[in-house]
Every structure is written in C-alpha cells, then in structure tokens.
Nucleic acid binder design. Structure first.
Lengths: 332, 332
DNA sequence: CTGAAAGCGCTTACAG
DNA sequence: CTGAAAGCGCTTACAG
C-alpha cells in the first residue's frame, strides 16, 4: 500500500495477492476459506483500517442496512423526551446489528419524505414512533408492503407493533387510588387521535367499572391543550373531583399551575397523579405520583422486532410488561 | 409493463424503446435530450410511479445523498426539545434538496457509530448538534476530513459552525436588568464543557464589566445539576443576589421550586430570568423573562452550509442574528 | 439528439 | 480452499 490509503476491496486483494472474492469472504465470514488466509486478510484490513464501501454492499445485496424512523414533525411537540429516548433505543439495537437509522420527520398530510425513502429504496424497513388514527404514513407503509413496526398499538392486523402496558398500568394506578377511598375522579387527557391516550383512558374507565363506579359518572375530558386546561381544571373542581388524573406529564404540568392559582392544596384538597412521566414532573413540588415506562427499552424492542422481520426470523407484536408505579406526595 | 411494477431504469427503457442513457438523462435533467423524448419518458415514469434506485445512483456518483446528524446520546438529556427542533430544521432543508438524514447518537467516548457511518461511506457530510470541548466526535471528523458543520461555536479554525447570537443576547439581557438598578446578580450555569454555556457566561460577564460591576464580584456558579441546585440557590441568596440568571430553562426550572420552598417571592424579593427557553418555562408561574432562539432555523442554517460545502459552493460559519428577549413577570 | 459500453465497489453462483 | 466473471441499478465519457 506504500502508505497510501486503502480504498477498495480490490486494493486489498492486489496487495495480498489474492482475489476480491477471498477478501470479501474473509470480511463477511461467509463461504469456505482457510483459517490462515482469513487471518492474513483480516490482519491486513485491521492494520490499514480498511472498511468496505457500504453502498456497494447495499447494491449487491439489494438491501440498504438502513432503518427508517418516523418521528413527529411538529415544531412544538409535547413528548420530545419520549421520542428522543425511543430513538436512542432504536439506534442502539440497530448499530449492534450494523444497521443505521434514517430519520424522517412526519409531515402530517405531506408524506413526501417517507415516500421518498421507501420508493428510492433507501431503507429496508420502517419504525413509526407514534401511532395515530388514520395516519397517512401508516397507509403508505401498508400500501408499499414494506416491513414496519409501530410503536404503540394499532388496529391493523397485519401491522406489527410494540407497546407499553398502558391500559393495565393505568387501570392499576386508578384502582389503587380508588382503593384509598376516592370516589370522584377526573381524567384530563391529551389528543384522542393518539392511540396511547385512548389506551390510558380505557385503563381508567376499566378500573372505575371494576370498582362499581360507572365510567359515565366520572369526569373525562380529552383533547386538552394549554388553551383548554384552565376550563378543564375548573370543571373538575366544580364536579367535586377528589383526584385529578392526567394522561401524561405535559397535561399534568399544565394543570398544576392552574390548581396553584386557584389556591387548591395538593394533596389536602385534591390529589393529583399522572399516567406518564418522563422528566417534566421531576422537580415539581409537591412531587407527583405517576407511572414510569422505559422508552429506551421500547425503542430497543421495536428495533429488535423489525430486525426479526428483515432477517427472516419470527416476529411478533409485543407489549412490554414492565412499568413502575411511583407513589409520591401528590396522592398522600 | 403489463400491469407489472416498473423496477428499474432498464424496464422503462425497454418499454419505451429507448436506451437506459436516455431514461437516465430525462430523470436527471443533465445532458441534451429532445424536449419530446424527455416528455415521453417523464410521462411514463409519472404514470407508472417509477423511482430510480437511490443506492445504485449513490454508487455511480460516489455520493450517498445522506447527511449524518450527531445527536447527544445520553438517556436523560436536558435539551431534547432543542435537538428535536434542530433536527426538524436539518431534515426540512435536507429533504428539499433530496438528501436524507442519518441519525447517530453520540456515544461519548465510544465513537463507534460515527466512525462506522463515515468509514463505510454512508454519509457525504456530518452535522454535530452540540458543540463540546475535546469532543471525540469532532476529532474523528477532523481526522477523516469529512465535510462537517458544528451547531454551536468551536475554536477549530477549519471547522464550519452555525450558532445563535448567544453571547450578545445574554449580554443585552443582563445589561437591561442592570439598567433597571440591579447591582448584585447571580448566574447559575449548566455544564461548562458545552460551549453554549460558556458563551452565555461570557455575555453575562461582559455586561457586568461594561456597567462597572466587576465580574469577579458577581456570583457565577457553573456545572449545576439537580443535585447542586439547592446549594447554589442558597448561596446566591446569602450573597444578597437581587436577580438570579440561569443559562437555560432546565436550570431555571430547577431553581424555581427551590426559591418557592424557601418562601422567596418572585419578583418582589428576587428577580429571575433565563438565557434560554424552549418549553420548560412555558407554563410556570410567575412567567419567566427569557431569551428565545429559533432552533429550527438553526438546524436549517447548519444544513444549508453543509450543502454549500458538498455542492462546491462557498460556505461560511454563521451566527444567526435573530433572537427575542421576552420580558415577563419574573423581572417586573 | 441518442446509444453502447465501461465503471462505481461490492457479492456470490459456478467452476476448478 | 480459491478465483474469474456476472450481476446489483444507476451515470457519463465517448462515439456517432
């Protein structure tokens, strides 16, 4: 090599007096090769820090070794910490298997980006980080028949998904609060078109029913955002809510200042809990009871299933059993 | 085509009775071609929804049309909203120019992921979303001589960067507060190895000096995290701080509950302001004076400069002039 | 204006 | 165990 950089498999072959075939086999580990030849090639590659061109490999394999990851593309998203953690998990597992992650931001109605990476054959499969109803992205995936995994549940029977045990966890936390004597509960929920928020509501209602508190008699207000939170909190209090549950920390973080403004003491006057917490509630006072799920692990699991699909192993939709119920001052 | 899917440029050529060359030229727009032939090809492609294989194109061009984006890979990062917005900006500009974004999570000391995408030729250039001292990632980029842009400032003279006007903005906000009569200021700062936090401290000190308040006499505490915030707040109060400035909303969000715990009234007893706000302070009461920068635009600018570099145009390091100073109740 | 052919850098079925 | 050659699907210099 004369100090020059090693550029291609052919350079390596020439330098070693072997064929490209041999070099390729040593690198991939496929095909018979004498242990000694393999060693020579690998040593040389190591010494010269040679890395085969992934694009050429992709073309020959007709596979890219890229996974598409669809993230929400709104400027102000409420769950960025979740998606960041999820992406970290996906990225970890992908790189352990020599895949890379092509990130595309979901443009809502505009599916140009996702269509491009699929139709141009830039990815072998796709992970969708948020499951919503009537998602144009999911239609594209179905139509193109590209291997995909949805994070969050989905009705579509031929779509793989990986989800947290949202419904059960929310049911259990609600049941626990009911068991402490609360009879009037309010649920403040986020965007109803996100399947995660519907699962959480389901869990809430299930616990109510099981406790003989008819769901219809409890106060459930969905689609809350910063503009609607004040009236939702006010209504909950009017209806005599003893406990206000929020589907996530974003909503909870909106509700808390409202309660403070109104002079409502927590937990003396009203208890508060959140069905989800990533970081927003971390430093709030009083500390808030909440459920914790592992978003990194969820990303890892989604990626593992997608790889199963891509590498011809069995793949299954999965619900991750683990979650933590963290009881804190707000429900004391 | 007989209803079959169009797979390659060769299928198109055959169906139309022209050569692959012609099809390729019609698609790329390069090379002479009669207007009529071009139309025929483009119409056919449109009708059959044909998209050329990007991997083959990459190999022929020796370019991938992928940009690497290095994001912080810690599980609990404090600035996720910033990076999400920044990624959105990068992704927008990239896709406008038919590039895609390969996301890698920075593994700190482990540079395996970033090395892989560079050495395997999976990206044409790299954007680093956070600038830190002695960053192993930046060493790799320098050493591999791959076109790169750093978001945030950097000492390295041959590295392009794109940054917000942090120092000036922080100076101006500090100066404004001083002009309202405050003489004792405290600065609570985040991780000092992030260049952004150093720029903000610089701006703070500059304003102090200009006002004849020696910086050394002001209280500056860096590297604050949730464990250290209580003592930092206590010390600021002991030293008689009339105003507590925080380098970002994360720190500010840590300091506020501490102040509340101690019964300190804002703004009556102490004023509070933050040098940065994405969303954490949005719903805090009292509302907090802060600086706002446009992270999406920063991502867009970084991507534009990288594309300039890649496409042989002139590229320059840039500081985005725009920022907003949002005066709110906490400094009334 | 249009096309045949070489080339991008790998992989792998086939032959030896 | 090893290699020559075809092939993956594009691009483009060269020739006509």
């Amino acid at each position: 090599m004369n100090g020059k950089q090693v550029y291609t498999i052919e350079d390596v072959a020439r330098a070693l007096g072997v064929s490209k075939t041999t070099v390729s086999r040593a690198i991939s580990g496929k095909g018979r090769l004498s242990a000694e030849t393999r060693r020579r090639v690998l040593d040389f590659i190591e010494a010269h820090n040679f890395r085969p061109n992934a694009v050429a490999r992709s073309l020959a394999h007709s596979r890219t070794f890229n996974l598409g990851l669809v993230l929400p593309g709104e400027e102000q998203d409420i769950d960025v910490a979740f998606f960041h953690a999820c992406m970290l998990g996906v990225s970890q597992v992908a790189s352990e298997h020599d895949y890379d992650v092509l990130a595309v931001m979901d443009g809502g109605e505009s599916t140009r980006q996702i269509e491009r990476i699929i139709d141009n054959h830039k990815v072998d499969g796709v992970i969708v980080a948020r499951s919503t109803d009537h998602s144009p992205v999911q239609s594209i995936l179905r139509q193109r028949k590209i291997p995909s995994v949805i994070v969050g549940c989905t009705q579509d029977p031929d779509m793989l998904y990986v989800d947290n045990r949202n419904q059960e966890a929310c049911r259990d936390l609600t049941a626990l609060l009911i068991s402490r004597g609360m009879r009037r509960l309010a649920l403040l929920g986020g965007d109803e078109s996100y399947t995660v928020n519907r699962s959480r509501r389901q869990g809430f209602l299930e616990a109510c029913r099981q406790a003989g508190l008819p769901g219809e008699e409890q106060l459930v207000i969905m689609n809350i955002d910063s503009a609607k939170v004040a009236s939702a909190v006010a209504r909950s209090l009017e209806q005599g809510a003893e406990c206000i549950l929020c589907t996530d920390d974003y909503i909870c973080n909106l509700a808390l200042p409202q309660l403070r403004e109104l002079g409502v003491r927590i937990p003396e006057d009203v208890k508060v809990a959140s069905f989800y917490d990533n970081t927003l509630l971390e430093h709030v006072l009083p500390s808030v009871t909440s459920l914790r799920f592992d978003a990194v692990e969820l990303g890892r699991a989604a990626c593992r299933e997608l790889l199963n699909l891509l590498e011809g192993r069995e793949a299954h939709s999965r619900v991750l059993p683990a979650y933590q119920m963290v009881l804190r001052d707000s429900t004391k």
